[in-house]
Amino acid sequence: MLLRTALTIIWVSAAFTASQAAAQHIYTCVDGKGRKITADRPIAECMDRTQKELNRSGTVKREVGPSLTAQERAAQEEKDKAAAEARAREAEDKRRDRALLLRYPSRAVHDQERVIALAQVDEVIKASNKRTAELAEQRKAIQAEFEFYAKDPGKAPPGLKRKVEENEASSAVQRKFVQDQEQEKKRVSQRFDEELVKLKQLWALREGSIPPPASSAKN
């Protein structure tokens, strides 16, 4: 008798615990036929629509979205990926903006670095032009040697001909190098121009975030 009573108590307790656990998850929705359905688990009839999970008090705990097809899930994942990439780009843009402001806190600093950068390229061009002038002088000396063979250029020694070829090749290299450096100057100027456009916006935003002095605020 005592054993039967104990078993009954255990069964009733377990059933009560299970009912309590089930009561903690209450789902409700309106199906495609307009019927309001309530259950203790996600409702199969409403898998294509939003269901509400209720607290024990009857308030909405959360909303469970409709189940997606494989194609819909793929589209949603692609959308989420695009959104994540957009957030990453936005964060990177903000990081670059902060770095740009730290590097160039004012227009004067930016202008000074532009001058230095262009001057460095000019120095390289100057050195190349000097080398070109040296090659031109070498070419004059070589041409003077060739005057001895003006009547019969075919008798000019191979070494002299090789000097001409090397001089012409070196001169061509220097001319191409100077052209490249002139293009580099344009790229440097363009970079500073683009930075300045962005910096003007950042400087304006920064200045706008500074509160006015107390005296002007009173006025």
Rank of each mutant, 00 (worst) to 15 (best):
D152L: 11
P153D: 06
P153E: 12
P153R: 08
P153K: 02
G154F: 05
G154E: 09
G154Q: 14
K155G: 03
K155C: 07
K155H: 10
K155F: 03
K155N: 09
A156M: 00
A156Y: 06
P157L: 03
P157G: 03
P158G: 14
P158H: 09
P158M: 13
P158F: 06
G159V: 15
G159F: 05
G159W: 13
G159K: 15
G159H: 08
G159N: 12
L160C: 06
L160E: 12
L160H: 11
R162F: 11
R162T: 15
K163A: 04
K163L: 08
K163N: 05
V164W: 00
V164K: 04
V164Q: 05
V164R: 01
V164E: 04
V164P: 03
E165N: 03
E165C: 06
E165Y: 09
E165Q: 14
E165M: 13
E166A: 09
E166C: 12
E166S: 13
N167C: 13
E168A: 01
E168F: 00
E168C: 02
E168T: 03
E168K: 02
A169R: 11
A169L: 03
A169K: 05
S170M: 07
S170A: 04
S170K: 10
S170H: 04
S170D: 10
S171K: 02
S171D: 11
S171Q: 12
S171C: 09
S171P: 06
A172Y: 02
A172E: 02
A172W: 02
V173G: 08
V173P: 00
V173W: 00
V173H: 05
Q174N: 00
Q174F: 06
Q174W: 07
Q174I: 02
Q174Y: 15
R175M: 14
K176M: 11
K176Y: 01
K176P: 01
F177R: 07
F177H: 05
F177A: 01
F177T: 04
F177E: 02
Q179G: 12
Q179A: 11
D180C: 10
D180I: 02
D180W: 02
Q181Y: 05
Q181M: 10
Q181R: 10
